[in-house]
Design a protein around this nucleic acid. Structure first.
Lengths: 275, 275
DNA sequence: CGTCGGGCCTCCTCTTGGGGGAGAGTCAAG
DNA sequence: CTTGACTCTCCCCCAAGAGGAGGCCCGACG
């Protein structure tokens, strides 16, 4: 019926490489209209070029061959459009993520090379805090921090107490993608206050801490931790408890870029023997 | 000096897999601070986590490991920033390309499945044209088409001739990424006009053509060609000359989406014996 | 009719950035 | 000392082809 073309000419028509066409034939994504049984030569019909072109375009947007096959096998055009739209959205999301990451990295470069973190030791005095402990996971941590401090503020209001210092959070556990763990929300208060059902009032002992101050958006805080833990082990100290983040200013009042967060880790006072 | 951590803990600190860390150690991108000679165990210093994190972030933006190494080895932070910016721009460009491609594909799906191309035969009568032939390549084709029709229009103005039909281009050669080839710009005119140094006036013979009309932006025309050539060979005709595109309306007057382009291919009149 | 150059075949290896698992050695806690 | 958790190296696997070797095949030209 139809004039067939060999793979080389078809390759030029469709701007797909011969290698790619062979691969597509092998996996059944684009079957040649006829394969010569004795020579093995592949022959295509010109009409197949449209499907080939669709494949080429979908490949330029990084769609896996498997998915291309699925999309091309959809009969209903509106359904196919929907599938394309989904891939489109995935691509847009991916680039947005990447853009965020790159910006993040730029600021890391700024901060780490131009303004490295200073780590210092301090003997913090004993202080009384109102504390609320809460289990959370990475997915809900944003909401949990909001509601945790919210509950604490409510308690402060009800007991007519004034904070005597910036609030902080004690990170009792390492919270990663899978595991959840405990946070403890704390606000320093005057001694003598009594707790409620949910809020505990307690006095933390004086202790030695190593600390550094992170200046900038919260999501970029991890280098502060790396620097701090590195410094602690470099100087032969032992970590004696969970770390804390002290929020020196209010995200409601200053911009992200001006946020100051003191990261603090209790340590043993004496330097271990030099090793 | 420093407390070292084994690879598993370092992996959790940096959210890089053990496999990835092993790979980075092997290629020298992130050397463990110390490797136990007898057991082969890798040990990292906590301070290395910052470099590890930078690697992780750069990987999320699809930067090759080689390039990451280069960027991390740059001393000057402003230079490093510039390198990052370049990668950022590459990413943005890539996504823009992909977005264009996806939109293109959506319209192809619309057109091909909902409004397939109709191919028809027609015996076109003999007609006189003013013609200008020009060699071009894919890179310059946009400008060449503009200047080609520009020169023709100038000729028409100088000889006070009126076009007697829509302009068209004969594509004498296949023009792809590497090769260049000839275009012939034509405007139908009344018989009897005489040519100039550059513009030829000639009469094209009556001939049988197969044609289809592409409705939409020009860059999306290739399915029209595929459909046309497929139809021609499916119906046992032979192509007897180069194809032409007849521009039925003016890109200056209507929007891209309303453009009508008739794609026409001269063929042998008789259907070949059924085969 | 032969022959020559290019087209096409299969098969192999290589790429990037790891994932998965086998089999064996190691480390630390009970 | 034993057990269980870590870690090691080695091997194969993935996508989506690129590149090349060695060997047919096909059509055009003399």
């Amino acid at each position: 019926m139809s004039q067939m073309v060999p793979i080389g000419r078809f390759s030029k028509m469709t701007r797909l490489s011969v290698k790619a066409l062979s691969l597509y034939a092998e996996i059944g994504l684009l079957q040649p209209a006829w394969v010569d049984g004795s020579s093995g030569y592949r022959h295509y019909e010109p009409g197949q070029a449209n499907r080939a072109e669709a494949i080429r375009i979908l490949r330029t947007v990084d769609m896996p061959l498997e998915e291309i096959r699925e999309i091309l096998d959809i009969e209903d055009p509106s359904e196919a459009k929907a599938a394309l739209k989904r891939h489109h959205d995935r691509l847009v999301t991916r680039l947005a993520d990447q853009q965020r990451m790159l910006e993040y990295l730029e600021t890391i470069i700024d901060r780490e090379k131009i303004m490295p973190y200073d780590v210092a030791l301090e003997q913090v005095p004993a202080r009384t805090v109102a504390a609320l402990r809460k289990t959370t996971s990475l997915k809900t941590i944003g909401d949990d921090i909001g509601s945790g401090f919210g509950a604490l503020m409510q308690f402060m209001g009800a007991t007519d107490a004034q904070p005597s210092g910036p609030p902080f959070i004690v990170y009792w556990d390492i919270i990663d993608e899978e595991t959840s763990g405990d946070l403890e929300f704390c606000v320093p208060v005057a001694a003598g206050l009594s707790g409620s059902e949910t809020v505990e009032v307690k006095t933390l002992p004086s202790e030695m801490v190593a600390y550094t101050v992170h200046h900038g958006p919260y999501p970029e805080i991890s280098p502060a931790y790396h620097t701090l833990t590195g410094w602690i082990s470099d100087h032969g100290h032992e970590m004696t408890g969970p770390p804390r983040e002290i929020y020196l200013n209010d995200p409601m009042e200053v911009s992200e870029d001006e946020l100051l967060t003191r990261v603090e880790w209790p340590i043993s006072a004496e330097v271990a023997a030099n090793r």
